[in-house]
Design a protein around this nucleic acid. Sequence first.
DNA 1: TACGTTCATGAATCCATCT
DNA 2: GAGATGGATTCATGAACGT
Lengths: 365, 365
Amino acid sequence: MTTKTQKAAATLPLNTILDGNCIEMMLSLPENSVDLIFADPPYNLQLKGELHRPDNSKVDAVDDAWDQFGSFAHYDRFTRDWLAAARRILKPDGAIWVIGSYHNVFRLGAELQNQGFWILNDVVWRKSNPMPNFRGKRLTNAHETLIWASKGEGAKYTFNYEALKALNEGVQMRSDWVLPICTGHERLKDANGDKAHPTQKPESLLHRVLLGTTNPGDVVLDPFFGTGTTGAVAKMLGREFIGIEREAAYREVAEKRIARVRKFDKNALEVTASKRAEPRVPFGQLVERGMLRPGEVLTSPRGQAAKVRADGTLIADDIKGSIHQVGAALEGAPSCNGWTYWNFRKEGKMISIDVLRQQIRSEMN
Amino acid sequence: MTTKTQKAAATLPLNTILDGNCIEMMLSLPENSVDLIFADPPYNLQLKGELHRPDNSKVDAVDDAWDQFGSFAHYDRFTRDWLAAARRILKPDGAIWVIGSYHNVFRLGAELQNQGFWILNDVVWRKSNPMPNFRGKRLTNAHETLIWASKGEGAKYTFNYEALKALNEGVQMRSDWVLPICTGHERLKDANGDKAHPTQKPESLLHRVLLGTTNPGDVVLDPFFGTGTTGAVAKMLGREFIGIEREAAYREVAEKRIARVRKFDKNALEVTASKRAEPRVPFGQLVERGMLRPGEVLTSPRGQAAKVRADGTLIADDIKGSIHQVGAALEGAPSCNGWTYWNFRKEGKMISIDVLRQQIRSEMN
DNA sequence: TACGTTCATGAATCCATCT
DNA sequence: GAGATGGATTCATGAACGT
């Protein structure tokens, strides 16, 4: 399995922009080979007057061009096909992000679910500077919606909880993100000084997505690459990217843009790690190493005593078991972290046994 | 036409709660007869095991029978049927609101479009006090989504632009609404003191919906009436309501609640909505937005250097943490305001990072 | 009475690894 | 693969309680 994946990765066209139709190009890539897909698909629905297919070809006016249901069916077919192609190349523990507005996001979300993707969160990008509703006939459309999904129920996925929490000043990151739209120098211009792409996404949005749900070295694919925001941020953050874009003008702008990008320092990319990532230390090791002696008494926060046994289990009255099991039993709780629950006595002071675990861990480095 | 509508309205069971299945009850009402439908259907949450908080207390989940559906196919059929029944009784110039979470809202939105409803806005209810994500495995699910739709493309609908603008301190109302969840006195309790309904919506939410998209005297129907928030707010605002609810316990609570409501307590509501404190800006946002680059060096008043990391933490020698933590550590102080402590270099000059925070704050207004 | 502390709780698709 | 075990994990708010 590892060999197969590695082989696939070796043949991936990393850090390039593929020229062509995204469905065909994805079909040409090896299955189970990319870690993350970020997709900002077109949603040219409900544009009265001219009705275009997602591939920009014009819909034949004879077959009820202005019939809504006809256009939805068409859009749904397109969505089904590109999502299926994306699903094939996604690793089993990979994830996908899609972004849309109310015109298309309900079709996207429903089709994701139909194909077995498992929605992890929907995220609202709350625009701090949206375009107002000029005619005063509706609410200011001030947000877009992203959907984050794993490949299926129970599948693993990458989530850098602590990094996002750090990014949010120490409180866990919420599903609503306030970020400005892409303007100023960041907004790419064409030769005429007009905006190079109508819906260029801000780099801040991709920064949060990639920092939170990929690791350095991961492969990120964007099938609707446009002017390459995904590629630019991936490069900054030390991730590999693959872009697919059928418009030569966009590819050209994206190439130049990404060439200018500098990767961040290596130690700037190190991110606040989760405790879960730290090596596991069996409690028995404290006994083996003589940090705690068999027979020694540990004390709970409420003063209950338990005696350490030679095999690294505890006994408190008639309750025997691991540090976690005995703690849970004493508290009548479904579970208990014995490391932070129990204390030992040293020179008259009570010290958490977690201090001893830290000591072992620091020796391991 | 007018005569027919008036006749229909005359036979409507105004300001009552109908007992029964919402589809059957809606089929028994005259077509084209109600002005607005507000629907909060079951979300089909698909919860599996139990969930405990870090303090080991158990989360009281929504496990009611009415939220159980065998599959997406079942849920879709249910959605199609009740939406079709709702569509029949809605006036041609009426509108519908539905509310959901990522579990069901994509199915809802897609089916609305399939039936020819015309989406006017999707609205995000950003909860100011959501339940956190206890296991740190996803983003805090801090919002729900509402969809506002007219009966079809080109149909007229009611929108009280100026009223909502006034409610929003003179600026156009946006598609994201920050409102607290329903707690405190407003939260209805049963005889045991437990919550009477697991998903009671806040009156502030309905206040905004009804004020913005109905006129006094309009008929508002809620096919999933629950404990009657829609009815209570409709009565306050001088609108007529029709509720449908099949659970006797909910109907009973709703009846009593609405009987207590007095019409027109004009300024009683919405007080919670607008807190105008200075918004908190996470330092990480400066990094995401490219105002500071990962790897860039910040300088303390005494000339000590710290490097910015991609997740918005700092590293100075072996001290890692937030701008406040690292500042405090360097000073040997219990706390430190990192915003006024750290400086960055621009064109040879040292500038406080607080200048960047001010910049973000001014964009937010 | 005022104020500080503790406690309860809210639409939740909430674990990873080894045996 | 199923079952057992280790052990990581929370924010805002209102009510209750104590000084």
